[in-house]
């Protein structure tokens, strides 16, 4: 290692990265939501339709008198699915459409992922926030019990999504089949994700199994934040933090590996 290497301040690099991610965000917004922001509306319409649909179904079946407020339950479930699924799915195909942009040296592969992750997480968060406010205003959803718990749960779920997005994203660069397999897996994972049940409803042996899944812990915490003592939530924040931390390592390693071995055109 020679002494001629210039020392670049971390802050300087960080500023450049922020600039690049900002530029990529603008670029992603244009293609994701279109010039006239009509695509942006789908962010709200989709979960709203789903929530109202489930509400209608439950009312028709006469099951709406069940212990939990079904609207808030469905909304929180779907919003959390939206968060992890969109974030991870969007990273499965992040590199190819942006390949040309990587001719610019500061557009690194991690910036492509990070900008898409930021965009999807904020999209899902804004959607959840606005729909909650709308439903609260119409009285379909009650006031949340503990905002901090909701924020923590949302943060943990976003963190998990980031980890998985980095892993799936970089793996799908290495092999195209990963993206397809992930799509199948994500559908299979949907009923297990904790979005549509409470752990307490399950028999004990199933509870123990299902709590190994990080997203289940997150949605449990989310529901406790929403419903307070109405539900007996099962979760462990420490476990989710541990898993998130452990998953971040292979995620970053894979991104780095892909960044070093991505072939030029």
């Amino acid at each position: 290692m020679s002494a001629v290497l210039p020392e670049q301040k971390l802050v300087r690099s960080l500023r450049i990265q922020a600039r690049v991610i900002g530029a990529l965000l603008m670029r992603e917004i244009i293609t994701r939501y279109g010039r006239h922001n009509i695509g942006f509306l789908w962010l709200f319409v989709e979960p709203m339709m789903f929530t109202l649909g489930v509400l209608a179904l439950w009312t028709a079946l006469g099951l709406h008198k069940v212990v939990l407020p079904i609207v808030a339950f469905t909304l929180s479930g779907y919003a959390s699915v939206l968060l992890w699924r969109n974030t991870i799915n969007r990273c499965g195909n992040a590199v190819e459409p942006n390949r040309a942009l990587m001719h610019h040296r500061n557009v690194r592969i991690i910036d492509l992922y990070v900008s898409r992750i930021i965009l999807e997480i904020s999209g899902a968060s804004i959607s959840f926030l606005i729909l909650s406010v709308v439903f609260m205003a119409t009285g379909l959803v009650g006031m949340p019990d503990d905002l901090l718990k909701i924020l923590i749960a949302w943060f943990l779920l976003a963190w998990f999504s980031l980890d998985m997005a980095l892993i799936i994203g970089s793996l799908s660069v290495l092999s195209e089949s990963v993206d397809r397999i992930w799509h199948v897996v994500s559908y299979l994972f949907l009923p297990l994700s904790g979005a549509f049940f409470m752990v307490d409803w399950l028999p004990t042996y199933a509870q123990e199994l299902v709590l190994w899944i990080p997203t289940v812990n997150c949605t449990e915490l989310l529901r406790e934040g929403l419903f307070g003592n109405l539900v007996r939530a099962h979760y462990s924040v420490g476990y989710v933090v541990l898993v998130n931390m452990l998953l971040l390592l292979p995620g970053l390693l894979l991104v780095r590996y892909v960044g070093l071995h991505l072939e030029g055109e």
Binding site: R27, T31, H103, H104
Partner: peptide, 25 residues
Amino acid sequence: WPLAFGGAFQGSLTGLDNIRFICRV
């Protein structure tokens, strides 16, 4: 960046959007 026949631009964006993007970068 390497000025070449291909590359460096995002195809589905307009020239103007690409200019803005590169300026930001």
